[in-house]
Every structure is written in C-alpha cells, then in structure tokens.
Design a protein around this nucleic acid. Sequence first.
DNA 1: TTCCAGATCTTA
DNA 2: AAGATCTGGAAC
Length: 198
Amino acid sequence: MEKLTAAFFERDATVCARKLIGCTFRWKSTAGIVVETEAYAEHGDEACHLFSRPSAREFVAKKPAGSAYVYLNYGIYWLVNVVCKNTVTGDRGFVLIRALEPTAGLAAMKKRRNKERLRELCSGPGKIGQALGITGKDHGKNLTLPPEGNQSGFWTPDSDDFEIETDRRIGISKAKELEWRFLMAGSEHVSIAVGKGR
DNA sequence: TTCCAGATCTTA
DNA sequence: AAGATCTGGAAC
C-alpha cells in the first residue's frame, strides 16, 4: 500500500472518484476501505458547489489538489470531499467520500456513532464524518502529505479483485442524470444500493 | 420493509 | 429559502 500523492488528484473528479474505490482512507487512528464515492465537477454540473458557492470557488483557487473540502450539510452533518484539479484542462471538482468499510479504530467509531454493527458505522457521508470525528476545523487539511508529516490520507488498494459499478448521485435536485456515483460491487457497506437512490 | 417529518445552520 | 443527510416512529 502506497500513499496517494497530490499528483493522483491532478485530474478530473470523475476519474479520481472511480480510482478511489478500493483505496484505504485513513484518518488519524481510524481507517476504512472506500466503497462509495461521488464526483462533482466545475463545468456541466449544477449540483457542484463550484456552480453556486463563491466561497467554494475561492477555496479551490487557493488550495492544492488533495485538500479536504469539509462542509456542514443540512445544519447537522459534516461531509468530506477531496479537491481535484486537472492540470491539463484546468477543470476542478470534488470527490465526495460516501461510504467506507471500517478496518481500523472500530472502538472509536462505535463510540462516536453509538452503534455496534459494522454496517451502521460508515455507510453514508454524514456517518463518515461522525464516525471518524471530522468537522469544519478539518476544512482545508492537506491529505497528500507523506505519512511522517500527516497520517491521514488515502492508500492504494491491497488487491484489485473487485468490480466497480456506477449510478446516479444521491440527494441532489440538479444534474440528476449524471452517472457519477461509484460503488464497489457487492459491498455491504454502501449507503444505498445501486438503483434504489431514485 | 417502506414512508415521512423533524432536527439545525450555513450560504446565498 | 434551500440544501451532496440521518433517524425514529408510524403504517403497511
């Protein structure tokens, strides 16, 4: 397993979102295998914060690829994204981390979530923020520093013995038709099964 | 098992 | 005024 560097995130969010499936996301003492992501793009995607939020545009203008974009959703849940920047085209975007298969720090996750069953710990973007203890104070954190400088970030998969499925994104009203949700086929840890998200 | 409303607050 | 969610309870 090798840690993903900034170069990994220097391409379209759709590419990064697909390639992050199967990777391990480590956050301090907790970790899990990424089993679900969504891509949001600067152009042609009205659901992306870059379309409607000046503060998001300002953020990506000054933060490098691989930075954490964390924001409060519905006034309650912290959602974690990673900044992507295509260095060739200049296009920018985010990958929303939507679900993990928990692999480390299970006791801490169970305590924060107040749940015992593994499937209820990280099967949704709001749950991930809660289980891993991620909040607005982590907004802007660089996830691509070397391990000795930052233990949080993404690692390449142990094996590539899995299939990737695509589906429409969850919980949005604009650009619903885009198939920019990526899932590890057959995983029990996804938020909503393929096709059931409407 | 599915549906629905409520919680709660930042951004625009 | 709307929103990249989750939960518990009611109904089926």
